[in-house]
Design a protein around this nucleic acid. Structure first.
Length: 518
RNA sequence: AGGGGCGUAGCUCAGUGGCAGAGCAGCGGCCUUUUAAGCCGUUGGUCGUGGGUUCGACCCCCACCGCCCCUACCA
């Protein structure tokens, strides 16, 4: 099917026919490279022009034509391969009439294989003096304009293949994402974890609170959920004696899309038996610091206007964070004890709302922010909401936030000294939630009680039934354990200085376009 | 979901209630060390879609579609 721009598409089809008429196959099966353009550029970056004259360096390489400058009976081109650009010089005298004719039929975007030797031009650019030239694949569609490239964000994401060709930063971002994944695997492999894969289609979407996607299996005539978390399966494996496991894979949540949310996203989850959340706090600090060092070459990472320092971590309880980030002009700020008192969070939320309403009346009023609706919430839920409203966006430097309310943590173990709190922490960096960890609740009766409460309370983000098989697994005995989930997309954002999750997902979800031919 | 912004040639972008524009890409020509190559000539438009106002709409109004930002949702 021809695509727009039609005139250029047809023009290139014509050239394709001419190439065939020359006796060349425009889509040959393979081409042996002696080295890639990137390897050639790297190996000879500092070679002098004179050295090429005394000792000839022959190369055989391939790539996509990105620039083309014809000068009558000679011409220059740049090919891009393996992430680098290499200049070619093609001269009628050197290649002969037939090959030169082929060269004249080439367009930007075509993929070619060449052989020749290296030299430096008058302007000292490393260049291949081409002896032979072969078309390896014809581009029937033109590349975007060479100065500005492809800037339209929507087009970049819809046609990521073009984005990758013309925007080198995109390539770097995704290479770095792969490095991050390798680094994570190396970190856990070295510590005796085994990598596992658990179901992504589940009959009960548990392990988190989120609206699931529904799909259907025909043979079993069975509705299934795409998983929202692997948590309950990974803990079953701990019951089975796999004491250290991790999984890196996709989760699916049928919720909003934003610069920090994509409906399918990649999570690392890992579990470690005979440990508690304090062990994971230490492990988290080590993991992030070593990964930053490995990926970015330093524990200091530039993210927008911020310099994130992964060698120094702040540890805050949720209540401390609320106190710390209470708006100064809404003084007096509450104390942690106020937040701990029964009914305290509600009273503080009311105070916050009163302050907000006064703000709206000021002449310099910012756009109105909805007041907190805490009418049907428990103290723990209100505490969580206060934290998210007041403190979360302010947590720029790496922070471990701990002491979560039990109400909002159905899978975590309570603190022995205070059952209103659980042994749980989250990782916050650059105002984003990066990770979530806790000491795993392993008392089957308490777990069942909390599940039943959850199901009874209902809501779209809660499973409709209790995962009784999980309770059965716990009944065989789950060793004391701690587990954690880390959002890989957001982690990649941090380490690539990307400010939208869509920049670190190759094909983010976009609405299909009615007219796909553009 | 609500508010705001954007949508003009393949790409990057100007534009005005009165003939639809530029650069690059494309096409033809000249050019054997150029690199944003250059010079001469030239093709290409449902101005996101559909209504409305108007003598006349790319422009003003309404609805819809898509993207971006903020808010909401999101443990």
């Amino acid at each position: 099917m021809p695509f727009e721009p039609l005139d250029q598409y047809l023009q290139r089809k014509k050239k394709l026919a001419e190439v065939k008429a020359l006796g060349d196959d425009p889509y040959p099966h393979k081409f042996e490279q002696s080295s890639t353009p990137a390897q050639i550029v790297a190996a000879h970056a500092r070679s002098h022009a004179a050295s090429f004259e005394t000792e000839r360096v022959n190369v055989r390489t391939a790539g996509r034509i990105l620039t083309l400058r014809l000068h009558g009976k000679a011409g220059f081109a740049h090919i891009q391969g393996d992430g680098a650009r290499l200049q070619l010089y093609v001269k009628l005298d050197a290649v002969g009439e037939r090959t030169f004719r082929l060269f004249q039929l080439l367009d930007m975007g075509d993929i070619v294989g060449i052989s020749g030797h290296l030299f430096r031009t008058k302007t000292n650019e490393l260049t291949v003096w081409v002896d032979t030239l072969k078309l390896l694949s014809k581009a029937l569609l033109p590349l975007p304009e060479k100065w500005h490239g492809l800037a339209d964000v929507e087009l970049r994401h819809r046609q990521r293949y073009v984005d990758l060709i013309v925007n080198s930063r995109v390539r770097v971002t995704f290479l770095r994402r792969a490095e991050i994944l390798r680094g994570l695997r190396a970190f856990f492999d070295a510590r005796g974890y085994i990598e596992v894969e658990t179901p992504m289609m589940q009959t009960i979407a548990g392990g988190a609170a989120a609206r699931p996607f529904i799909t259907h299996h025909n043979t079993f005539d069975l509705d299934l959920y795409l998983r929202i978390a692997p948590e309950l399966y990974l803990k079953r494996l701990l019951v089975g004696g796999l004491d250290r496991v991790y999984e890196i894979n996709r989760n699916f949540r049928n919720e909003g899309v934003s610069s920090e949310h994509n409906p399918e996203f990649t999570m690392l989850e890992f579990y470690q038996a005979y440990s508690d959340y304090r062990d994971l706090m230490a492990l988290t600090e080590e993991l992030f610091a070593s990964l930053a060092q490995k990926i970015c070459g330093s524990t200091q990472v530039t993210f927008g206007e911020h310099k994130l320092d992964f060698s120094r971590w702040q540890r805050l309880s949720m209540r401390e964070a609320i106190v710390l980030h209470w708006p100064p002009d809404a003084a007096p700020s509450p104390s942690s004890a106020d937040l701990a008192a029964p009914g305290g969070p509600r009273a503080i939320a009311v105070r916050y709302n009163e302050w907000r309403q006064r703000q709206v009346l000021l002449p310099s009023a910012a756009p109105p922010v909805p007041l907190l609706d805490v009418s049907s919430m428990s103290d723990g839920e209100i505490t969580g909401l206060l934290f998210e409203t007041l403190a979360e966006p302010k947590l720029i430097q790496p922070t471990l936030l701990y002491d979560f309310p039990t109400d909002i943590s159905p899978l975590a173990k309570c603190r022995p000294d205070d059952t209103s709190l659980v042994e749980r922490f989250e990782v916050f960096v650059a105002g984003m939630e990066l990770g979530n960890a806790f000491s795993e609740l392993n008392d089957p009766e308490e777990q069942e009680r909390r599940f039943r409460e959850q199901v009874a309370r209902g809501g779209e983000e809660v499973p409709r039934e209790v995962d009784l098989d999980y309770i059965r697994a716990l009944s065989y005995g789950l060793p004391p354990a701690a587990g954690m989930g880390i959002g890989i997309d957001r982690l990649t954002m941090l380490f690539t200085d990307s400010h939208s999750i869509r920049e670190v997902i190759l094909f983010p979800l976009l609405r299909p376009q009615a007219d796909s031919n553009q």
